[in-house]
Amino acid sequence: MNTPSSDADDGPTQAAPDEVEGINPWVVRFFLILAFGLAFGIEGMTLIRSFLLGEDEDAEEQVEAEERGEIEEPEAAPVHIGDDLLPATAVSERVAEMKIWGRSDGPWVFRLVVTVTNDGKNAYRLSLRNLEVDDGTEFDDVHAAECPPGDSTQLVASWPIGTDARPRALTAEATLQGTNDSTRTVRRRVTFGHVPVQMKR
């Protein structure tokens, strides 16, 4: 006697649902490269734009300063005896003496002597200010001298800078009187190299 087969045995096998096709890895890489490229491009354009705008602002500030009769000279090599403090002026401002006077029982003193020769036709004033020493201390003392046209003078400046201190830089500023009460100012941050020390008893 034959046993009838079940419906499960006689019926057709049900097919599994179609699987989702995998994403092509090259497509993923393409979109990643595109995203990174856009990010770097935007950042690069921002940097270039800020650089160009910064140059424009610097140029505008320089033009405005020149219109006001102000000239800012760039820092140069450390000055030595005989060097001109402000080469951009027609007046000669040469370093005649540069020395540190040291004492065992008191503060050391930095002494700077500048010979000013005004061969021009306008009044002239030289100022030395904002002396900075090697430990970062800045002195706000101002030493100045005026020199009439066709004359010469010496500006003798001294600062008590403390034991074992060394001068690092100061600001030299020249003011020249022009026509119609106009003035022209030339400014430069002057740096110092080796400054000899002479001990006093």
Rank of each mutant, 00 (worst) to 15 (best):
M1N: 14
N2W: 10
T3P: 11
P4H: 10
S5A: 15
S6E: 13
D9P: 01
D9F: 15
D10F: 12
T13E: 07
A15N: 12
P17D: 10
P17S: 11
D18K: 07
D18P: 04
E19P: 12
E19M: 11
E21Y: 08
G22F: 02
N24G: 08
F31A: 04
I33Q: 04
I33L: 08
L34P: 00
G37I: 04
A39T: 09
M45H: 15
M45Y: 15
L47D: 12
R49C: 03
G54N: 11
D56P: 02
E57Q: 13
D58C: 03
D58T: 08
A59N: 06
Q62D: 14
V63H: 07
E66L: 09
E67Q: 00
G69M: 02
E72N: 06
P74Y: 06
I81V: 06
I81F: 03
G82E: 15
L85R: 11
L85E: 11
T89Q: 05
A90K: 13
E93Q: 13
A96Q: 08
E97W: 09
W101L: 15
W101C: 12
R103S: 14
R103V: 12
D105N: 15
G106A: 12
V109K: 08
R111G: 12
L112R: 10
V113Y: 09
V113H: 12
V113D: 11
T115R: 14
T115F: 03
V116E: 11
T117A: 03
N118M: 03
N118L: 01
D119N: 05
N122T: 15
N122V: 14
Y124A: 02
R125C: 10
R125H: 13
S127W: 10
L131K: 02
G136E: 13
G136L: 07
G136F: 03
D140N: 14
D141V: 13
D141Q: 15
V142Q: 07
H143L: 05
H143P: 05
E146D: 14
P148M: 05
P148C: 06
P148V: 02
G150D: 12
D151M: 09
Q154A: 09
L155A: 07
L155V: 02
V156L: 11
V156D: 10
I161A: 08
G162I: 01
T163A: 10
D164M: 07
A165R: 14
P167K: 05
R168H: 08
E173G: 02
E173S: 13
E173L: 12
T175H: 01
L176N: 00
L176Y: 00
G178I: 08
G178N: 04
R184F: 06
T185H: 03
T185R: 11
R187M: 08
R188H: 05
V190A: 00
T191P: 02
T191K: 09
T191A: 07
F192Y: 08
G193Q: 02
G193L: 01
H194N: 14
V195G: 05
V195K: 07
V197T: 10
M199W: 13
K200L: 13
